[in-house]
Each structure stands twice: as structure tokens, then as C-alpha cells.
């Protein structure tokens, strides 16, 4: 049994006649960085709002199995940055953070200044309304970190950041996860960045979870590979073994993925022909996380096949 922090059960949210989230079941392990991938309007933000207590589920439930105490107490151990950062524009970064700090019973000036520095801002008298998009985003992350949460919910936290800022935030989140053991739920449309951080993923489309997997499983799916489609899988395996391929897997009764010696595809094809094995298709398939996402959500039908 995995050590889960949060488990949702058939979580759903309906706005009037629009189903925003449809029977979602996600399992977030303690200490993981869980990436939520989905198009705009797929339901990512609504899920985040429900589990952070900002929105009520229409049906289904969620439980912070990793926390002791009531559900209401659990909310005090969650830090969230959902949609755009909620800032009082006429106040400084310090004042914005202090309002939340006082709600958590923290009045320490040093604590606030440390948080400001942690997210790469400098304490100043500049009002939050005058901040750039990136600065606002950093302040939003600082607000989410108030009270040293055990669980961070970050909705598109690198929105508006420049490449250096993105790298800094990534580094900071990795550090928080590794050093403080904070579990992180993060969504981003920059999947390349998400891939550098997340240990687990859920792909969401039209309010439904299409796939939930670990980063290892996902890497496997995204790896460059020779894809053989044949009705004779059992006869194909001895041929692959005979050629000395070590790293391959049988996906189903019609598909085999071969992960090593991709350049030997011609030899493999010839050997299969010699063995009189009918091959529907054979080719090297390459996809990164983004392509994989587009494929499973049906946005790009079919596969991109090289060679």
C-alpha cells in the first residue's frame, strides 16, 4: 500500500450544465511532485480549487490520508497558488505576506523577509500593483509558502517568468521537495519544464483523468523506440531475441516496442520478412511529453513515425 497524502474518489464539479470535473480519481504520494497536465479548460484549476477548500465538489470526495486531524485542519497545512496570485495591489510584498502570516499566527519580520528573498524578490516599498507579471508570480509563490505547508498546490506557477526565472523556480521547488519533504501538485502548460520536476503525472482531458502514471512509466512511453505492429507477436519474439535485442516489451497482442539499437531497424525488418512474419508496420517512433500528451488527449490523431 502506497503512502498517499491525498486521494480523490470520483471527484466531480458541475457548473450549471457544464461538467468541469468528471469522476476524477487521483492518488498523490507523500513527498512526490505530481504534475497535472491538461489543456486550458480541462479541469485542472477546478480540481485544485476543490482540494484546497476553495470550491465545493458537486459529488465525490477527497481525503488527506497523509494528514492527521480533520479535513478543516488539513487546509491549514496546504499552500496554494491557484489561477493568478491574489494580491492587494496597494500594498507592498511585505504587507501582502504579513496579512497571510498573521492569519497563520506568524508575526516574525525575519520570516517574511526570508520568504521574500527565497522567491527571488527584494524587500522594497514598491506596491504589488506595480510588479511585473513575473514578480507577481514570485510573490504568489511566497504567499503559498506562508506557514511552511506540507502540501503545495501550484497552478501554472511559472507563468510570466523569464527563462532564468523558470529555472530558479524549478530549482526552488526541487529544493523544497527534497530538503523539506513538501509534496507538490503542479500544473503547467510548459510540459518540458514539468518533465524536469514531476515524479508522477495525471493527464486530464475534458474533466476526466485520461492517464495517471509515474515519471518512469511516462519516460518509457515517451522513449524513442522501434514500434512493430504484427498479428504474429509470438513468432516475432524469437526473431528479436535472435538478433540480440535486449530491451523490448510486448505492449499488446499486436504491438512490440524495441528500445535499443534503433539504427538496426532495417536488419530487423529484413529478418522478419525472411521468417515470413506478416508486419503491418514497423518504424521508429519518437515523442516527447508534449507529443505524448497531444496523442493521448486525441488532439493529434495517429502517431508520428520516422523512417
Amino acid at each position: 500500500m502506497e503512502d498517499y497524502l491525498l486521494v480523490t474518489k470520483d471527484l466531480s464539479k458541475v457548473y450549471k450544465e457544464t461538467v468541469a470535473v468528471d469522476n476524477v480519481n487521483i492518488h498523490i504520494k507523500k513527498g512526490s511532485i505530481y504534475g497535472l497536465i491538461g489543456k486550458n479548460g480541462a479541469g485542472k484549476t477546478t480540481i485544485m480549487k476543490m482540494i484546497s477548500g476553495l470550491a465545493r465538489p458537486t459529488s465525490g470526495s477527497f481525503g488527506y490520508t497523509g494528514f492527521t486531524g480533520s479535513e478543516k485542519e488539513a487546509f491549514s497545512r496546504i499552500g496554494a497558488l491557484i489561477e493568478s496570485p491574489a494580491l492587494e495591489p496597494n500594498l507592498t510584498a511585505y504587507d501582502n505576506i504579513k496579512i497571510k502570516c498573521l492569519a497563520h499566527g506568524i508575526g516574525d519580520k525575519k520570516y517574511i523577509n526570508d520568504l521574500i528573498e527565497l522567491v527571488g524578490l527584494t524587500p522594497s516599498s514598491k506596491k504589488a500593483g506595480k510588479f511585473s507579471l513575473g514578480q507577481k508570480q514570485r510573490l504568489g509563490i511566497a504567499l503559498a509558502l506562508v506557514g511552511d505547508p506540507d502540501f503545495l498546490i501550484l497552478d501554472e506557477p511559472i507563468n510570466g517568468l523569464d527563462p532564468q526565472g523558470i529555472a530558479e523556480v524549478r530549482e526552488m521547488l526541487s529544493k523544497l521537495n527534497e530538503e523539506r519533504g513538501i509534496t507538490i501538485l503542479i500544473s503547467s502548460h510548459i510540459l518540458e519544464e514539468l518533465a524536469k520536476l514531476a515524479t508522477d503525472y495525471a493527464i486530464i482531458d475534458n474533466g476526466r483523468i485520461v492517464e495517471e502514471s509515474t515519471s518512469k512509466e511516462l519516460r518509457e512511453k515517451c522513449r524513442d523506440k522501434i514500434v512493430i505492429k504484427t498479428p504474429e507477436v509470438s513468432k516475432t519474439i524469437p526473431v528479436i531475441d535472435g538478433l540480440g535485442f535486449k530491451d523490448y516489451s510486448v505492449v499488446n497482442d499486436k504491438t512490440i516496442h524495441v528500445f535499443d539499437r534503433l539504427t538496426d531497424i532495417t536488419v530487423l525488418n529484413m529478418e522478419l520478412a525472411k521468417a515470413m512474419i506478416p508486419v503491418e508496420s514497423i518504424g521508429v517512433e519518437s515523442s516527447d511529453l508534449e507529443e505524448y500528451f497531444l496523442k493521448v488527449t486525441g488532439t493529434i490523431p495517429g502517431e508520428r513515425v520516422k523512417s
Binding site: S76, E88, K100, A103
Partner: peptide
């Protein structure tokens, strides 16, 4: 400004 989003400590 959506300030109450920051106060999810009072969510319940």
C-alpha cells in the same frame, strides 16, 4: 483581487 484565496486556512 481574490484575496480570500490566500486565506484557505479558513476554508472550512
Amino acid at each position: 483581487t481574490g484575496l480570500d484565496k490566500n486565506l484557505n486556512i479558513f476554508a472550512g
